[in-house]
Amino acid sequence: MEALQILERVKNRFGDRVLEISEKKPDPFAVIDPNAIVEVGRFMNEDPELAMDCLSNESGVDYKDRVEVVYHLFSYQHRHGAVLKVKLPRDNPSVATLEGVWKSANWMEREIFDLLGVNFEGHSDMRRILMPEDWIGHPLRKDFVEPPEYHGISTVRESPIVRLDTKKK
């Protein structure tokens, strides 16, 4: 099935809980009500015509006014894919985990939590994965400022080249 047909099918099933369908090329996507994402995920996984058996990619994007979690679903059975999105508030973003539907969500959600600070409710192991446990802040947030040092280790190396003029590049 084409991506748009898939999204239409989801729209027909869930009605206004599918907030928006964007037909923008090259990858159309549907924005889902954050409260319904598990239901939608489970439906897409179990519906024999969609059979989205693989959560191929889950990533978070920080858009200064909101945080989005993007799900790239894929079906090995029918060889088609679809993109879902949830839009979350920037303060304390929180959405239900999809770990129960696709196991691969486990680590990817940990990564999003780590780097963007999205809390996944019901996740079995919500810890930082890439950054150290005691790191403050979420690095992929647009307003993240890197601390000058971490445990006494400087995080910056001053360039030894001194510009002769004061002009800033």
Binding site: N57, S59, D62, Y63, V70, H72, S104, W107
Partner: peptide
Amino acid sequence: GWYLVSDGTGYPWRVHVRTGSFAAMG
């Protein structure tokens, strides 16, 4: 998997790489 979000400027807004090893580790 490479996921790219562009805002039309000369700098990517967001790049995400979904790699095989990451999944295999899980």
